[in-house]
């Protein structure tokens, strides 16, 4: 099982942002995307997760292998923590949620309404969802936003456990997770170049 991305070009709002991106992830590997704000990390992650089509290139893996976590956690504030996770477990057709609750230290909060959680606790709930999906490729966009050091360690441990189980993780993050085995890819050199000026064809750009 591997994720083999070749020649990937992505566009945001109809404008190409990154082009010619190649990387391969094998089972048990993690890759961290780095680059300045607005360079297109989120767009790459959304494309890999199958939420938008690539401009060019291939993502050599089924959409069904991906679990995506974006900036928003998709938490329903009027449901309890347990209900939130059980919903995603049912949607993804996986079993218990106890392991996920445990991994992110949410067991004590399980019956609290998600609306009453702090930002960091909500984030932990959002990340616990990744465990619940049971999918091999985790696609994570800035997963550590609003997490404290303890929670970051929990997250790193969860990722490590996922990798040890033969999973993969692709993430965009700025902070050091202590995941020493993770490779780092700087996407800034892949910034899309403006096309030649007289190239006025069907695509307008």
């Amino acid at each position: 099982m591997e994720l083999n991305v070749t020649g990937l070009s992505v566009a945001r709002g109809g404008i190409p942002v990154l082009e010619g991106l190649d990387f391969t992830l094998r089972a048990g590997e993690a890759l961290i995307l780095r680059g300045p704000n607005g360079v297109g990390k989120t767009t790459v992650l959304r494309t890999v997760a199958g939420l938008q089509p690539p401009l060019a290139g291939t993502i050599g893996q089924e959409r069904d292998a991906m679990a995506y976590a974006g900036h928003a956690d998709g938490i329903k504030t009027t449901l309890t923590v347990r209900e939130n996770l059980e919903f995603w477990a049912a949607i993804f057709g996986t079993g218990g949620i106890d392991a996920a609750l445990d991994a992110f230290d949410l067991t004590g909060l399980a019956d609290r309404a998600a609306g009453g959680l702090s930002a960091g606790q909500k984030r932990r709930l959002g990340l616990a969802r990744m465990v619940v999906t049971g999918r091999p490729v985790w696609v994570l966009d800035e997963p550590t936003v609003s997490l404290d050091t303890g929670a970051v360690a929990l997250f790193a441990a969860a990722v490590r456990a996922h990798l040890a189980g033969g999973g993969m993780a692709l993430m965009a993050t700025h902070i050091d997770l202590g995941l020493t085995e993770a490779r780092v890819l700087d996407v800034a050199p892949f910034r899309a170049k403006a096309p030649a000026h007289d190239d006025f064809d069907g695509s307008f750009l």
Partner: peptide, 16 residues
């Protein structure tokens, strides 16, 4: 509501 809190993106990647 699902759009605002991001659930819609997550549902779109779900096996549904």
């Amino acid at each position: 509501l699902d759009w605002e809190d991001g659930s819609l993106d997550l549902l779109a990647t779900a096996p549904l």
